[in-house]
């Protein structure tokens, strides 16, 4: 059986691409006059109506006392509570007989940023930070030692306070 082709005539107005193209251009042009929603990272890191939450849990920071020493007393609670087992702590004694960490290392690759270490710390020494720019050239650089943790300057996280559940 021979193949027959049935030709259907369509109205000119429906098959013209010109109309659809112009419609698209109108949509595109209308966006030019709308308020901007993108942020030009990395030049711009926050806007008036958007910043990192103060409860953001990023890479750690160790707070220091007036003499610049870590506030940590090596009590061993953070390695105990850490669900990812990413904190290495070896306690020791300084010249004045105070307990302090000989080794304090956090493997930021293993860390799951739960913030339990900050929550459990009785000395308010270790904190998770409001910080997210952590790129490095070597994997080994992601194990933060005590010196590096103390040298961090970013703000620290404000954890959720059960007594003030609505507050920031």
């Amino acid at each position: 059986m021979a193949i027959t082709v049935k030709t259907v005539r369509r109205p000119e107005g429906e098959v013209s691409y010109l109309r659809a193209t112009l419609k698209g251009m109108v949509v595109t042009l209308s966006h030019v006059f709308r308020p901007k929603v993108t942020m030009e990272y990395p030049e711009q890191k926050s806007t008036d109506d958007w910043t990192l939450s103060p409860r953001w849990r990023g890479t750690h920071r160790m707070l220091t006392d007036e003499q610049g020493r870590a506030k940590c007393v090596a009590c061993g609670l953070c390695p105990q509570i850490c669900p990812a087992n990413c904190i290495k702590l070896v306690p020791g004694e300084d010249e004045e007989g105070h307990r302090y960490p000989l080794i304090y290392e956090i493997d930021e690759f293993r860390c799951i940023f739960c913030g339990y270490c900050q929550e459990v710390c009785p000395e308010e020494a270790i904190h998770v930070g409001v910080h997210y720019e952590n790129a490095e050239y070597e994997r080994s650089r992601f194990v933060y030692d005590l010196e590096r943790l103390c040298a961090q300057t970013h703000p620290v996280s404000t954890l959720w306070d059960p007594s003030d559940p609505q507050g920031e």
């Binding site: 090596a74 009590c75 061993g76 105990q80 306690p91 020791g92 004694e93 307990r99």
Partner: peptide
């Protein structure tokens, strides 16, 4: 034993 280990470890 001073500062050597925590009891729970």
């Amino acid at each position: 034993f001073l500062h050597k280990a925590r009891a729970w470890e």
